[in-house]
Design a protein around this nucleic acid. Structure first.
Length: 577
RNA sequence: GCCCCCGUAGUUCAGGGGAUAGAACGACGGCCUUCUAAGCCGUAUGUCGCAGGUUCGAGUCCUGCCGGGGGUACCA
């Protein structure tokens, strides 16, 4: 896609080149900070030196040589010290941007740079018979946002929930269920009860050799594919997926596949054989398969001395399956930062055995959450945060505010708003900063409903929609003509239009850097520009009809672009709040 | 020991070589007879961890150190 903002940049570069004063390799522009009154700037330092002129004088010389074509998006060109500053031509720019948004609607900001390429995203990945906790929440929210962004960029996105549904602890769980039955609970409470059941069974197995043997039998029967063991296990998996689905629905999270670790069980023998025959692996004296992918990495095991598979074995099988099945350009793992070394080892091994076929393997890490006293969260410490509880708290907090401000709305309407706002706050909290940072748990911050938060952004959207509803009701405002749009000359109007024009670039960069926080920052800045416009420029009360029409179109465009930005994050945009 | 992250306002954070380092929260003071006060306006707060280096230019890149977190083969 080639947006207005791209055209402006291209035109600036072209006019610079056309002066014939600058080495082509040195023709680059940058976006100055907000305090600088320029939209793009050319720093002359390097080219001035090559030219044998002082930067200050060179900037003047270039500026004098620049010829701006007519009907260009470029407005003023001025030399400021060693910089050549370019400003947009407000009228031409406004008309182009607003038309673009009006035409593209929900697709504004989208692109086709990913066309023909497949990306697999591995995220969420909860464990069977356990609640989703804070780590899964982060993976789920960040992964979903990346999926939205890459999909908007034209990539074919495969969303895979790599369920933790295999491992040696299942024997204990199944033995416990055989003895106690499945707890009579619903939703997340059921998973909590299963966690307790597992803990009890674990303890019993330690004290009671008979029960310990039962657990081992269940585990072996499961491994061997015993129909009864498989059926009980299947029941646990389905039940977990069903419970989690309720939270996924609230978060708007969707997957294309939920293969889970167990799916790769049949491939493990082949994987081990492949690696064993490669140059990077050998058997040690105990029979374990040892891998050494280079001196920068510690060695690790692909198969235990007792023949059992490990994390790396299953993940290598996963890579092979994904590459053979989907031929992806990239596989993205949204996994916590503590697993950084594991994944680097895994990627290096996949490469060493020739499995990768040019796919880019990416780890998108996120930091750990600590409580106020600096302790990691854990069930045992009792400081763990679970997904359903988090969403319920957020909803409740939003509901209190809605009840206070919207006595006029029905119970259902207030509940819908509280849900949209509460969920939005939770999602935004996980996306608005660099995911890599460790986080200190702070409920007030996690559920923030003012300032740099989703509710602030949603509020600005709702204000725009409110204006547009009144316009629709009144029937007085006609569509703006290009001449009308040239009336958008107030600094708050021009600033807002420039901000709207940047969404396509922001989306591309967010995709390239796996950084949803860039989109979040754009949404927040846009909301602030809307607030300034709202303060300075009356829409319905504008004195002249043409100005009224132009401002209505701006409000329409701003709300559309903002909604698109929020959509990339997975945050809904309610019509009122 | 080795490897990876982090260190910017009282707090949580933006800032991916360029011009005067920005927000939010918290604090203090103002603004609802005017398109939604989850809002708006104003005030105060910075040795960008320390020391070198590269560069015309460093919060940003490199090296070393200090502080915090994480990882370091038969768990995932």
């Amino acid at each position: 896609m080639y947006y207005t903002i791209d055209r402006f940049e291209r035109q600036v570069l072209d006019t610079l080149r056309a002066t014939d004063l600058i080495d082509p390799n040195l023709v680059v522009v940058e976006r100055p900070k907000a305090a600088i009154p320029a939209d793009l700037a050319f720093p002359t330092f390097r080219s001035a030196r090559l030219h044998g002129t002082a930067p200050y004088a060179f900037a003047q010389k270039i500026t004098a040589a620049i010829r701006v074509p007519s009907n260009s998006l470029i407005g003023a060109v001025t030399a400021v010290g060693p910089f050549v500053n370019f400003r947009i031509a407000p009228f031409a720019f406004a008309e182009s941007v607003l038309t673009e948004i009006q035409t593209l609607e929900d697709a504004y900001g989208h692109d086709n740079i990913g066309a023909g390429k497949t990306v697999i995203i591995d995220y969420s990945s909860p464990n069977v018979a356990k609640r989703m906790h804070i780590g899964h929440i982060r993976s789920t929210i960040i992964g979903q946002a990346l999926a939205n962004i890459l999909s908007a960029l034209g990539f074919a996105v495969v969303r895979d929930n790599h369920l933790g549904d295999w491992g040696k602890s299942f024997g204990v769980l199944l033995a416990g269920i055989a003895r106690e039955g499945i707890p009579a609970r619903e939703g997340e409470q059921l998973l909590a009860a299963l966690e307790d059941l597992y803990a009890r069974a674990s303890k019993t197995a330690e004290a009671d050799p008979g029960f310990d043997q039962e657990a081992r039998d269940w585990g072996r029967r499961l491994e061997l594919g015993d129909p009864s063991a498989r059926q009980h296990w299947r029941q646990m998996v389905d039940l977990t997926i069903r419970v989690n689905q309720a939270s996924y629905d609230r978060l708007g999270v969707q997957f294309d596949h939920t293969y889970g670790e167990s799916f790769y069980e049949p491939f493990l023998a082949g994987i081990i054989e492949t690696v064993e025959q490669s140059a990077v692996a050998h058997r040690d004296t105990s029979g374990a398969l040892v891998v050494n992918v280079g001196e920068h990495f510690p060695t690790f095991l692909l198969q235990r001395s007792d023949g059992a598979s490990l994390y790396h074995t299953r993940d290598l099988a996963t890579i092979q399956f994904r590459i053979e099945t989907f031929r992806p350009a990239q596989i993205i793992y949204v996994v916590g930062a503590p697993q950084e070394l594991y994944l680097r080892q895994l990627f290096a091994l996949a490469d060493a055995v020739g499995m990768v076929h040019g796919a880019k393997l990416v780890h998108v890490p996120f930091g750990t959450v600590f409580d106020a006293s600096g302790q990691p969260l854990s069930t045992r410490r009792g400081n763990m945060v679970y997904l359903e509880d988090l969403l319920n708290r957020a909803h409740a907090r939003a509901r209190t505010i809605v009840d206070g401000s919207h006595a006029d709305l029905s119970e259902d309407e207030r509940d819908d708003i509280a849900e949209a706002v509460g969920i939005g706050a939770v999602i935004y909290n996980d996306l608005h900063q660099d995911p890599l940072r460790s986080i200190t748990l702070d409920w007030n911050q996690m559920l923030a409903m003012d300032g740099d938060s989703a509710p602030y952004i949603q509020y600005m959207y709702a204000r725009c929609r409110s204006i547009l509803r009144r316009v629709a009701d009144s029937n007085e405002v006609t569509a703006a003509t290009p001449d009308d749009l040239s009336l958008l000359a107030h600094p708050s109007e021009i600033d807002l239009i420039k901000q709207l024009s940047r969404l396509p670039q922001v989306t591309r960069e967010a995709g390239a850097r796996y950084a949803p926080n860039l989109v979040a920052a754009w949404c927040y800045e846009t909301a602030r520009f809307i607030a300034a416009f709202y303060r300075d420029c009356p829409v319905l009360q504008a004195e002249q009809a043409p100005l009224r029409a132009a401002r209505v179109q701006l409000v329409d465009a701003a709300s559309q672009a903002l909604k698109n930005g929020l959509q990339l994050l997975g945050i809904s945009a309610p019509e009122r709040l």
